Simulated scan of single mutants.
Amino acid sequence: MTSYDTNEALARARGTLDRVRLQSFEGLPSAGRPRQGRSLAKRLAAIGGANVAILLAAAITGIAVMPLGIFGALAVMMVMVAVTLAIAFAPGQRPVTREKLAKSELKALPMQTTRWLDAQRPALPAPAVQVTDRIGLRLDTLGKQLASVGDETSAAADIRRLVGEQLPEFIRDYQRVPAELRGAERNGKTPDRQLVEGLELIEREIGQLSEELARGDLDSLETRGRFLEMKYKDGDPA
């Protein structure tokens, strides 16, 4: 699918969302709380790792240097409590905004977009959340490939347009539709269905961009392999 086809398909979907939104004059639905699951899991893992390290250090000290005794054990417990509280109440990462996505460096764009998508999950229907999870996997792969992509290349422009502009704008248009109208059918489709189909289209486009980048790497590898084969044919340098 060409970039023009993608833009046209997304424009049709966004147009449907806009028409549904205009049926109601009620205020916008309140935004859901950003998902905290991943952040909580990371904090718990950090707390567990830090406490294990403290206990190991205390055990090694008690065996190799001198017994800790009651006061030493109390000191270890106090350190563990202090570390636990410090990690638990440490300020989290600042939320990613659409404006920040537009200004992100190309190499950081996939990771920033994944964080932004995570924050949108509470406001999306379950089928759309499943698609955003797949998009996150695509973005993880794409992020690893961007280390060798120049900012001025056509591939970089396509990635910025799709990941940094079209994806967040499309989800924003859906979120502007009043919640009570998102399941109402119009022209054969509901806004919920339009959202899922648009996200699936974006997922496929990200996958194609990733394949194109991989194809370039494979071509480069094949060319280098042929060069080395010609230069060191039969095991002897030319």
Rank of each mutant, 00 (worst) to 15 (best):
184 A>V: 12
174 Y>S: 09
195 L>S: 06
165 E>D: 10
212 E>T: 04
156 A>D: 04
161 R>S: 12
187 N>Y: 11
186 R>T: 11
201 L>I: 10
214 A>N: 00
183 G>L: 08
197 E>H: 14
175 Q>S: 05
154 S>Q: 15
151 D>R: 07
167 L>M: 10
172 R>W: 08
190 T>A: 12
169 E>G: 06
203 E>A: 12
172 R>T: 12
189 K>Q: 15
157 A>E: 09
167 L>A: 10
200 E>T: 12
195 L>R: 07
203 E>T: 08
191 P>Y: 09
187 N>V: 12
188 G>V: 13
205 E>C: 07
205 E>R: 14
159 I>W: 04
161 R>D: 10
179 A>D: 09
201 L>H: 10
173 D>F: 05
180 E>M: 02
199 L>P: 09
192 D>F: 13
162 L>K: 07
152 E>D: 13
176 R>Y: 03
171 I>F: 10
171 I>E: 07
153 T>H: 02
177 V>E: 00
166 Q>L: 15
197 E>R: 15
202 I>M: 07
180 E>W: 00
171 I>R: 05
206 I>S: 02
154 S>Y: 11
167 L>I: 13
206 I>N: 02
198 G>Y: 11
188 G>Q: 09
155 A>L: 14
170 F>V: 13
167 L>D: 07
197 E>L: 15
167 L>C: 11
187 N>H: 14
160 R>M: 03
212 E>L: 07
177 V>I: 02
168 P>D: 03
162 L>M: 13
174 Y>Q: 07
159 I>F: 04
211 E>G: 04
204 R>G: 11
207 G>M: 02
208 Q>G: 05
156 A>I: 04
169 E>S: 14
190 T>R: 11
206 I>D: 02
180 E>Y: 00
185 E>D: 07
157 A>S: 12
213 L>C: 00
157 A>K: 12
167 L>T: 08
190 T>W: 05
182 R>K: 00
211 E>C: 00
209 L>T: 03
160 R>E: 01
159 I>M: 06
177 V>M: 01
177 V>R: 00
167 L>E: 10
199 L>I: 11
188 G>Y: 08
204 R>D: 09
184 A>D: 06
162 L>V: 15
204 R>C: 03
206 I>A: 05
153 T>M: 07
180 E>Q: 03
190 T>G: 08
175 Q>K: 05
193 R>Q: 15
214 A>Q: 09
151 D>N: 10
169 E>N: 13
152 E>S: 14
178 P>Y: 00
176 R>K: 06
208 Q>Y: 08
159 I>E: 01
188 G>S: 10
168 P>V: 09
177 V>H: 00
208 Q>P: 01
168 P>Q: 06
155 A>K: 13
198 G>P: 12
176 R>W: 02
189 K>E: 15
171 I>N: 07
184 A>M: 08
196 V>G: 13
207 G>W: 02
